[in-house]
Amino acid sequence: MILALQEAMVQSEYFQPELTVMGTTSGGMTFGEAYYRGLQAKAGAPHAASLIANYTPQKPVMDAQEAFRITAPCQVIANACASGTNAIGHAFECVRSGRYQRVMAGGYDAISELVFVGFDSLQASTPELCRPFDSERTGMVLGEGAAVLFLENFDAAKARGAKILAEVIGYGISTDNYHLTQPNPSGSGARLAMEGALRSAGMEAAAIDYINAHGTATPFNDAAEGKAIAELFNGVPVSSTKGMMGHSLGAAGAIEAVISILTLRDQLLPPNINFRKPDGDLDLNIVANQVQTGQVRTVLSNSFGFGGTNACIILRSVTA
């Protein structure tokens, strides 16, 4: 989190947010694990008070803000794997409403034993390669990391001569009440969120040039998401970058927003690696294995999570 914020600050050193909105799934779980193992060993964990303080999910944000003397109030969203995209989406709405000029957003998560074993217990993770949207996909590979984005009112940023990397123009959120860990197989939750993002951006599905999919490579997610994408979009290039970076849970949406911005900047579609055999049930235009060039002005980025949370944002390149 601190490293990600540091990189963002180097690019925009005078950015002082009025609000911070971050996403996480498990916060400081590794500290909680160390504390419990210390208790279990009946020796007590060394530095117990420090472990407790760092276990709290908001602590990485507090530490990062303290490191850069940022005192903005923090809203830390824990909407499972949609958290990062939720954070950017909510930050976007806060700026668009006119209530805030500058909001810091992003996501963070670190791999912990509990989370690793948890996904394994659900048979959601794979010991093999992560193959999003492949017919022989066997599950996700966990990742970790953080990403930070500075959102600012467009006119204010332009007026101060800021280097504008992209615009956030749409956000959709939906809640799928089907099951605590599985999406509705119809893809209705994902579809509602994507439709909401399009509505928020005031654009038609045909205007989307590339979709950075949630694409965890679990049989359930990819089937539901793929169905929803196929129903809404007609042959738009799709890739999931989780084959390359793993699924970083609460950080994933923020990391993938950065990837989407780089897609807009470089006009290169990131590949969906490890793709061997199309899923016959999914009518998708997968960016298979190799990076592709393309004219990309708008990107839809999807994130879906446990609890039936679905979040989508739309990013647009800024023309001179």
């Binding site: 950017i88 959102l151 600012e152 990397l165 615009e167 927003a257």
Partner: peptide, 15 residues
């Protein structure tokens, strides 16, 4: 990395 959000009247925002 920074991304910018345009202040827009669209979207049904009210005060």
């Amino acid at each position: 990395m920074s991304a910018l959000s345009k202040s827009a009247a669209e979207g049904g925002i009210s005060i």
